[in-house]
Design a binder for these strands. Structure first.
Lengths: 190, 190
DNA sequence: GTCTATAGACCGATAGAC
DNA sequence: GTCTATCGGTCTATAGAC
């Protein structure tokens, strides 16, 4: 693995654990076993590190989403697959998802992180389209506010990064199964 | 309103908007129209400000919860009332909920904020008891993991503080209605 | 209760040797 | 690619005048 990639992985873990602003370049350098000044041989700034972490993660995530959206699956299957992909991302890219969840509000205030707002808009379009297609196909309830359902699904899926631990009792597939069951059928006894 | 209370309100808004560590004592003083040094006539430190904000909010919140739990309502009604109380808290104490959501992970690392973990444990007991009572009473599904249902409800309710805006199209009652409908019945067409 | 003034620590980032 | 050394800026907090 290239040194650059290795350093980004170390930084991502620290950003995820302590938050972007609470992580100093000295923290990152310490964890990497070098001095803080040496980091600047690899990266322009602390901000450019987190930018690279987020853009490369989001690029891969949306590539996976696009594959599902371009398929000829029915609306409900697409929605399920996109939910499962998201829990898989939490499992395999926990740090990146945590940074996205915890720090994108702060980072979004800087011009260079404008891509975060663009990706958010893309995400919103994806989910609301899926919900509307599901309603049109007659598989989802018609009496619910689509915007609210979108926020409900989005938040429910991503916020799991706060407590999900890879290698724990529940696999990401277990979590996705139960979340989809609650989302689709509710918790009331039929 | 006492000056102290006024200053805490100003600080809470800034902490909620920018995060605890991204808010400087100068930010708070500027917003209050005084100089940063003058804040220390009222408070020991920035940490003691956020501590007072969180403890007084949580004390009021759990007082309201306890009233519901001590009532003789049936399990499903209790669960609904607790959910509604939470959305009401998001409406009426938006800043405090936002700070609790965004910064308690960081703050929880300091001894003086140990009360956050205690309140989390209390919250967990409350929700899991309510879910188990609902299952025992035959009104909730028995095939779901109680811990996971608890996290699902907790996260879904509180994370709404990220997008809910008092005075917007949806009142907190509207949001609670639809959230309860999704949680209890799911989004699938019956 | 607020101001002036500043201490003392820590931060991100840079220049140049090796 | 890492180290030595350090600059300039910002932060929380303090001391004492008004």
């Amino acid at each position: 693995m290239p040194r650059r990639t290795e350093l980004l992985g170390i930084a991502a873990e620290l950003f995820a654990e302590k938050g972007f602003t609470n992580t100093t370049v000295r923290d990152i350098a310490d964890a990497a076993g070098i001095l803080s000044g040496s980091l600047y041989h690899h990266f322009d700034s602390k901000e450019s590190m987190v930018e690279e972490i987020l853009t490369s993660f989001q690029a891969r995530l949306f590539e996976a989403y696009d594959e599902v959206l371009a398929s000829d699956d029915d609306p409900r299957t697409k929605l399920e697959r996109v939910v499962r992909l998201s829990f898989e991302a939490i499992d395999q890219h926990r740090a990146e998802v945590a940074i996205y969840q915890n720090d994108s509000s702060y980072l979004g205030g800087f011009e260079r992180f404008g891509f975060l707002a663009e990706r958010n808009a893309q995400m919103r379009t994806m989910w609301t389209d899926l919900v509307r297609e599901g309603v049109a196909a007659g598989v989802l309830r018609q009496d619910l506010d689509v915007e609210l359902v979108y926020r409900f699904i989005r938040d429910t899926v991503w916020v799991a990064v706060r407590w999900y631990r890879p290698g724990g009792d529940l696999t990401h597939t277990d979590v996705a199964d139960q979340y989809l069951s609650i989302l689709l059928e509710g918790i009331s006894r039929a």
